[in-house]
Computed example of a mutant assay.
Amino acid sequence: MSELSNPAVELIIVPPTRDLGGFEVRRALPNRRRHMVGPFIFLDQMGPARFPVGGGVDVRPHPHIGLATVTYLFEGSLMHRDSEGNAIEITPGAMNLMTAGRGIAHSERTPANVRGQSSPLFGIQSWLALPTAHEEVAPSFQRFTADSLPAIEDGGLRARVIAGSAFGQRSPVSTASEWLYAEVNLDAGTSAPFEADQEERGAYIVEGAVEVAGDIFEAPQLIIFRPGDRITITAVRDSRLMLLGGAGIDGPRYIWWNFVSSSKERIEQAKADWKAGRFKAVPGETEFIPLPDL
């Protein structure tokens, strides 16, 4: 269908798939047709995958500036370690918000205690561009367990508010700007409202298929909605989706590798700092990802 034929939809992105050796990643943002939705500048679906005994993810230490990362899992676990000394196991349904600010390095690995058996991995990793006034804040990490986040159950609708406000509930997570992130599970035939209180809004369909204003959208797709209208999303079959949105960011953002900034010069400085080893090290880690030749 033509994206412009649906009065509710501004754009549809079908994420390309990359094989990272043992599991697939689907990248919805950035895309050549749309770089951001609100502050969301990066959106990857990881898996679903199942690793053999002894296998898993091994993302060596690498740097970030000017952004916040959210790793949100449906299945499996990841061990997060960063240069601020945080060592936290990321588990399903928990909110894990790492604010890079002026600079942080981190690694993500399948925990050692999980590798003794076949293990799954399924989740979403997203990056949020920070407002200009917060791009150089001190790095930090917030973790909220699944049971500390607002949960909504209403018939065939089950939702968790990860950040911001939705379904009459507000997440306890503090953020540098107002944005929304929620996991929504719908039984077939069940509907969910998507209010127009965010300037920019999207729904990433992780599993299943949904109907919006007469058109059907299959997973995996990112639907970006036109501003201003209340949207109703109805599951055609059992479905899982992520609602996301927020105000448009305050000016252009540049993205290079793992760096995001309103300044190209600041990215060049971050590149030089990582190459020269000026980022703080991740305690307990000796490996690192070298600066790529992009």
Rank of each mutant, 00 (worst) to 15 (best):
V53N: 09
F141W: 08
F167Y: 13
V137Q: 15
G76E: 12
D82M: 06
A209K: 00
S165Q: 09
A209P: 04
V9P: 02
A281N: 09
S174P: 00
F167W: 07
A203M: 08
G116Y: 13
F194V: 13
I216Y: 03
I104L: 03
D293F: 12
G228T: 05
G248H: 13
L186V: 10
D19G: 03
I124K: 08
W257C: 02
V260W: 08
L29P: 03
I152L: 09
E75P: 01
F217K: 03
P290I: 05
S165Y: 07
P61L: 11
E195L: 14
E108K: 03
L222F: 05
G156P: 00
R27M: 07
E153H: 13
V282I: 10
Q142A: 13
D250C: 13
P30D: 06
V37A: 00
D19N: 12
P120V: 07
I152W: 01
W274K: 03
V184R: 04
A105D: 09
S126Y: 04
E135A: 07
A272N: 08
L4T: 01
D19F: 10
S262L: 13
E285T: 10
W257P: 04
A247H: 06
M36C: 07
R230M: 12
A281W: 07
W127G: 02
A281E: 14
S165N: 09
L186G: 01
S118C: 08
P252C: 08
I289V: 14
G189F: 10
R143S: 15
G208A: 15
E3K: 02
F42S: 07
R27K: 06
R50H: 08
K271E: 04
P193T: 13
E265N: 12
G189N: 07
L43T: 07
I231A: 03
H106P: 11
L121A: 05
R109V: 15
F40S: 02
Y204V: 02
I41E: 00
T132F: 12
G85M: 11
L128E: 03
I12N: 00
L149D: 02
R160N: 09
L241M: 13
A8L: 10
F259K: 09
V137C: 14
D293Y: 10
Q45I: 08
V25M: 11
L67R: 04
A219R: 07
V236I: 15
L121E: 10
R34F: 05
V70W: 05
P16E: 12
L222C: 08
